[in-house]
Amino acid sequence: MSILVNKDTKVIVQGFTGKEGTFHASQCIDYGTQIVGGVTPGKGGQEHLGRPVFNTVEEAVASTGATVSMIFVPPAFVADAVMEAADAGVELAVIITEGAPVRDMMYAKMYATKKGMSTIGPNCPGIITAEECKIGIMPGNIFKKGNVGLISKSGTLTYEASHQVVQEGYGITTAVGIGGDPIIGLSYKQLLPMFEADPETEAIVMIGEIGGDLEIQAAAYIKEHISKPVVAFIAGQTAPKGKRMGHAGAIISGGSGTAAEKMAALEAAGVKVVVSPADIGKAVKEVLTK
């Protein structure tokens, strides 16, 4: 079992024939993901990576039965692509593109929600169900199958965490990179109950960052609703105040959104919080052997 995606999930790629889209779609295909086609307006009817190309998402969905779209279009076209997917009845859009304007994402997410489409990202590594389905840009070989669910704001920290979990002899059910932009799709609060309900997931790792209050919301949720052990790391404990660390999300303003606050809230909710990012794997072992 897993959450959201598995070996039967049919995926299309928006921005299929571009450089990034091509490279990562072929990596996903190699991993075993059912990439059933792609969309590049104006290139409909062609074939790319042995899959059909369509002019519109609507045609792609009608002809392939895809339920998930992986989005690689340039930042200025992300909102349009997300809304097109929602309009075509896609169930989940995984938005990899970095640099989409916040205002665009605000409208795109509202529209997606209205149409009943979930989103992951933008500016994220994507989602992977180990050894079944990789929808994103993560190195697939890092994610061995196992019993740990992973939710992370940061791309490379997702890989780091999974790597450590695997080195301790465990593995991953599903890992979701939720992204760190000011407006994102599925977040801890929506993903935690999915892992709680997944019979294969026995522990959950949560990687957070300074800025915003999603981790604080997650802490409140965990306290009330999550019975499985949770391990957390919050990046940015030593980030200087008021400095911006590359992510729009990683801003500390006033007294809110600091790593210390988030760590305290999670600890109070019974989460095993690690101070060093090198201790994530060890902490997983600890909670699973207790």
Partner: peptide
């Protein structure tokens, strides 16, 4: 020198640690 903002922050954290 790190790739990714999250890992870069985590690297600063572990150096301090």
């Amino acid at each position: 020198m790190v790739n990714g903002a999250g890992l870069a922050m985590a690297t600063m954290d572990i150096i301090k640690h």
